[in-house]
């Protein structure tokens, strides 16, 4: 990180912060695991389970990025923030458009993945034929 901190800061502030974040991460893992053992997918529905598990993962990931990778103190450096912003925008674009263009069913990922609602089927467009590019 840009050198605005002295040794004392590292000793007194940063080190306890590391222990704290490590604790949060471990607790997060335990929570996800326990939730799975308790079967939240059955209790809350699959969609909520996804939101829960990926939400916890995102919190964990943010903690790692923010503190461990000390982005908290580096985020104002344009080089880093712009690069990461680009990567993340393109990543989302890639996922969204790739998956989006292959799901014919408007139901999206509402149903259980692997279940019938979301099964991708070729040659059975749900849209009017006239709009389809591939039909000839």
């Amino acid at each position: 990180m840009s050198d605005e901190h002295d040794a004392e800061w590292y000793e007194k502030k940063f080190r306890p912060m590391i222990y704290l974040v490590a604790g949060i991460l471990l607790v997060g893992t335990v929570i996800t695991y326990v939730a799975d053992v308790l079967g939240i997918a059955e209790k809350w529905g699959f969609r909520n389970a996804i939101i829960f598990a990926l939400g916890v993962a995102t919190v964990k990931a943010s903690a790692v990025i923010y503190i461990f990778m000390h982005l908290k103190w580096d985020i104002n450096l344009k080089t880093i923030s712009l690069t990461m912003a680009c990567a993340i925008i393109f990543l989302i674009g890639m996922m969204w458009l790739t998956v989006g263009s292959e799901i014919q069913d408007e139901g999206g990922i509402d149903g259980k993945p692997g279940g019938t609602e979301t099964t991708w089927k070729h040659g059975k467009p749900s849209k009017p034929k006239a709009l389809k590019a591939g039909d000839s």
Partner: peptide, 21 residues
Amino acid sequence: SFIVWAHHMYLTGMSGKVATF
């Protein structure tokens, strides 16, 4: 250039909405 790629794939049977995008 990152969000135009599927114009190489019009004939793969993508939905009309996506093709329009």
